[in-house]
């Protein structure tokens, strides 16, 4: 609980109703994420944008209310700012080399992917030649098998 509520002598006010409303909000956000996946949005970028935005909103609800950061004093900035800067530095530092590639990649998976694309779209763009067949019991005779 926040500082003032641990003070000792002041009157204790239950936040039960607020917590319950936040719980409901979090459930709704989860529902939105699942619905966004189920309605098959036109592109993955849109889906990623929606579900990550929802995740950020959920995280803010949990941090501000459940973790009481909304009620805490300024020390929270002192403690969390360096952490967050360092945390976000990692992906940004890695992205140019690993995620964006300023050089030509020669990984065997890249060649395989390019071969799939050349052969006809890489099986629905899942990057997975015949990957649906990971279900051994399921047969998909309509989909042509990839050969060398």
């Amino acid at each position: 609980m926040s500082d003032h509520e641990h003070g000792g002598d002041e009157e204790f006010h239950s936040h039960g109703k607020l917590y319950f409303s936040i719980f409901l909000v979090l459930c709704c956000f989860t529902g939105i994420s699942i619905a966004a996946d189920l309605i098959h949005l036109p592109n993955r970028a849109m889906l990623a944008g929606i579900v990550l935005a929802v995740a950020v909103c959920k995280a803010l609800c949990v941090m501000l209310i459940f973790m009481h950061l909304k009620f805490e004093r300024a020390w929270k900035y002192l403690l969390l700012t360096p952490t967050l800067i360092l945390a976000f530095t990692i992906p940004f530092a890695l992205a140019p080399d690993v995620g964006m590639h300023y050089y030509t990649q020669t990984a065997p998976q890249i060649r395989e992917f390019e071969a799939q694309q050349a052969a006809g779209g890489g099986h629905g763009g899942h990057g997975n030649p015949g990957g649906h067949d990971a279900h051994p019991a399921e047969a998909h005779p309509a989909e042509p098998e990839k050969t060398h």
Binding site: P91, V98, G99, H126, H132
Partner: peptide, 16 residues
């Protein structure tokens, strides 16, 4: 996230 960004053909099909 970074590895996924840099890996064209990353598996996204839940059946896979």
């Amino acid at each position: 996230i970074v590895l996924k960004m840099g890996s064209p053909g990353w598996p996204t099909d839940v059946h896979v």
